[in-house]
Design a protein around this nucleic acid. Structure first.
Lengths: 159, 159
DNA sequence: GTCATTGTACTCGGATAAGCGGTGTCCGAGTACCTGGGG
DNA sequence: CCCCAGGTACTCGGACACCGCTTATCCGAGTACAATGAC
């Protein structure tokens, strides 16, 4: 059970977008160059964020990606869902249905105690992710590493 | 990000093992027949549980699998770890290292705020899983569906 | 000088291949039981 | 009748194919800008 590494890329790229905010769009290629990532593949992930309404994209020259809304309205859950999809990690295949007392019209995702418990546990995780916004992350970073915004801006201005 | 379906099989099989407890071992084939699962593949999952010390296995005639310890000492986390492995879902690839201010000797799994937050969220999930034992599940099932232990025993006695 | 038109370069966007882990299967090592014969 | 040896059937255990998803790449659609020429 492993989460796509695109999630990490997306989170870092959103933070970078917030630090270089100039009203201008930033291309996927430049965002990729910052961490030496494959540009076309990062582009694919950013597309997913755009489809989810987290980023806004504009094609053509002077085009690229921008944040579609402020960081305090983007939760970690939003980003994870955009990249990974909305499906849960534990999926009850309802094997009880094939068992002795199994009926074809029972929804075992609801009635199976194992399914309930696993989903409840996963829900606490999702709630934790939904409770953290990218603004929280940004604030913590700026508090611990105050030079980050400036140096990031400088890097993108230089290249 | 999807969890192996073997986790579901393993959890249900452990409960069944607790209900048919007779001092005798139960073969993977019979456990698989209960839910109409591929026997050889379920066997593979049970092997993982045995390696993790959750089940005890004995080969040969009259062989099979038994619970290695009581259900109240088997947590959901134990089973998930046995099947899925101990690695975390979110793995910080330390892309900050390749960035402008990145140093080769910094452990970004520890210092990166994104990594910290993602891991903390995942930890709440793991803690939830570790706080639930299979005995809790069994008690809830027996409370809601009192006939389950008997009917399960009966099915295995019949076949 | 101003405007329209054409051409060009650049960006996202989705369609298209490679790699890898989960899924599924198979046969061998080892063990308990059964069978047959001897004491 | 009891004991022992050999054979047999059964189980786990790990090695071996298969498949779908993640990873990675490429080219086309569309747009803004620049260059060019007409007015």
């Amino acid at each position: 059970m492993r989460m796509s590494e695109g999630v990490e890329w997306a989170l870092h790229s959103c933070l970078n977008l917030s630090w270089i905010e100039t009203g201008e769009a930033m291309t996927a290629a430049r965002l990729a160059a910052f961490y030496d990532l494959p540009a076309a593949y990062l582009n694919k992930q950013l597309q997913a964020l755009a489809r989810a309404g987290i980023l806004a994209s504009t094609p053509g020259p002077r085009g690229g990606f921008r944040l579609a809304r402020p960081l305090d309205r983007i939760t970690l859950m939003d980003v994870v869902t955009a990249i990974e999809g909305a499906e849960e990690a534990f999926r009850c295949e309802q094997i009880l249905r094939a068992g002795p007392g199994g009926g074809p019209h029972v929804d075992y995702r609801e009635s199976c105690v194992i399914s309930q418990t696993m989903r409840r546990a996963e829900l606490t995780w999702r709630r934790e992710l939904a409770g953290q916004t990218l603004a929280d992350i940004r604030d913590t970073v700026e508090s611990r590493f105050p030079g980050t915004p400036d140096s990031t801006r400088a890097w993108f201005a230089r290249t």
